[in-house]
């Protein structure tokens, strides 16, 4: 399956978070690398969106939307750094 960049989920996540998640940096639980979400790889299917680490492929986050609910998991991320300015 062809992937996109983390940039591609900016609109989807802007519906739920008050900051731009794609510009935030995250530490991957799998390999420890730290990178902006925008640098991750995004795979989309009918089931939902999977965000994988650009360095090691580990699943960083999942987004599933159905009806009036959404499930957002950050299972592969140990910390997120957000710009407060």
């Amino acid at each position: 399956m062809q992937h996109l960049d983390g940039n591609a989920v900016a609109g989807q996540l802007a519906d739920y978070f008050s900051f731009d998640v794609t510009a935030a940096t995250a530490r991957c639980n799998g390999c420890g690398s730290i990178a902006e979400f925008a640098r991750a790889m995004v795979y989309r299917s009918g089931a939902g969106t999977v965000v994988r680490c650009g360095s090691c492929d580990q699943v960083l986050a999942t987004i599933v939307e159905a009806g009036d609910r959404a499930w957002i998991g950050f299972s592969g991320v140990s910390a997120i750094e957000v710009r407060r300015g």
């Binding site: 960049d5 983390g6 940039n7 900016a10 609109g11 519906d15 731009d20 794609t22 510009a23 640098r39």
Partner: peptide
């Protein structure tokens, strides 16, 4: 329309 989006690129 939804935006502006993306502070990285």
């Amino acid at each position: 329309v939804h935006g502006p989006l993306g502070a990285f690129f």
